[in-house]
Design a protein around this nucleic acid. Structure first.
Lengths: 246, 246
DNA sequence: TTTTTGCCTTGACGCAGATCAAGTGAGGTC
DNA sequence: GACCTCACTTGATCTGCGTCAAGGCAAAAA
């Protein structure tokens, strides 16, 4: 775990920046939240909760990456969400986890007990509004992923995933994805397969193919370099007019 | 179109029951909403909006069925949502439609101009709360569908769709899905294929197979009878312990 | 009545991706 | 140094579903 220092008593210099409850808040507005929050850490690979477990807290991701997955009885697994720092876990008004949550890397959560969080929400409409915004964004992401899962080829799926990670990586540095950008893959081949609705062998083969054709470069097994982002973008099968939503 | 009579001036006897804004509201609380609402009708097959269009209203479905779809440039189509009466269309804070919305049957929407709706939301936290709940439900549905799209076989996909429709149908009559229940399919084979990430031929073949094996019965092409709901449930591949979320 | 149109079914065939299986290579432990 | 394990790669084969093509049937149009 990183050496995060959790000393702040108000949101402005809170290092956590759990988007739902801290970003943009009025100074002093969230004193109660500050008082009821606490932290939990998980090792890479550890489960956070299992679907069906009782869950008496909601949380936001402080550091690390977690996944939301669903599993059929025969073991088939589908990842339904990827949780990055500032993402929200759990759902007000529900006491039972709907999905398996697993730490992919070492993970720190900033937790709030459910009950006080819910009454806080009642008193501070701002929190509910932020949560609504975030949930709508997640819904859009889920729907975009439905298109990927339902209609794209294995190759397009891989390209889509890489493009999404590259874009997200770039947005951390407040830039557009550019040529020559590189990043460390946070997921194993198997996790990628679970996200894309493929097998790990197919993931491996398609990554090899993209590499062979020079669309991506590999350093080791996990570091990806994208020499020409537009070329990768073409492989996703998406509209090329760069049409981001206004 | 049905002969709905839109005469009511408050929510209690409003025949519309747009869940987001009317259900459970305090009498008189939503007078402003009542004043700013208006209705639009669409014929079966008509587009409501195209992705990318400017959209100056939000709405809820009064009668009929609509679909949300996404399309790749080469024409591959994926349905990402099915809108039934009381479902909400559009999104506060966004002026551009993210998906194609199409009327499947004849359709009536109850619309609110965006601006007044948004200020109404600011003044009436209850509306935001309802919208958050609904959005979270939609998110769960989208994620459940990701599992269907990513990991289920064609046969399981069809069974899942039929089970969902049967359940929804039953809930309209406030019962659990029972043996011998029947319903009219609201979708063509092609729309089902778009929803399930299949081709219409595969949909047709799998429906024929389920019929041949007596798991479903057909009357005409659209009327489905389910002699034994548990047998259908088995075909979905889902957990059998009937585990609904608490 | 015949023709057209929209929606659906069924068959034959091919291929993308799953499955099964063997092998590689880096890091860790003894 | 020898051995193990874990993540990944690659090959051979199989198969579920897509693709292409030819009807069928009922309602609407002519």
């Amino acid at each position: 775990m990183d050496d995060l220092k959790f000393t702040s008593k108000n949101c402005d210099d809170c290092p956590i920046r759990h988007r739902a409850v801290c970003a943009r808040c009025e100074p002093g507005e969230l004193t109660l939240l500050e008082e009821m929050k606490y932290y939990r850490s998980y090792e890479a690979g550890q489960p956070v909760v299992w679907a069906g477990d009782h869950m008496d807290f909601v949380a936001s991701v402080v550091a690390g990456i977690a996944t939301l997955t669903q599993t059929l009885e025969d073991g088939r697994t589908q990842m339904v969400g990827l949780l990055l720092p500032s993402d929200f876990v759990g759902r007000p008004g529900r006491t039972v986890a709907a999905y398996d949550v697993t730490a992919v890397t070492n993970l720190t959560l900033c937790c709030f007990r459910r009950k006080p969080f819910e009454s806080m929400m009642d008193e501070t409409p701002r929190i509910g509004q932020r949560l609504l915004e975030m949930t709508l964004d997640e819904l859009d992401a889920a729907r975009e992923w439905m298109l990927v899962l339902g209609r794209k080829t294995a190759r397009e799926k891989i390209a889509s995933l890489l493009a999404i990670i590259a874009r997200r990586e770039a947005s951390l540095h407040l830039t557009r994805p550019s040529n020559g950008s590189s990043f460390e893959l946070p997921l194993t081949r198997e996790s990628m397969a679970d996200y894309l609705g493929l097998t790990l062998e197919t993931v491996s083969r398609q990554i090899s193919a993209l590499k062979r054709e020079g669309i991506i470069q590999l350093e080791g097994k996990r570091k990806i370099i994208i020499p020409d982002f537009d070329r990768l973008q073409v492989e996703t099968g998406d509209d090329t007019d760069g049409g981001f939503l206004a």
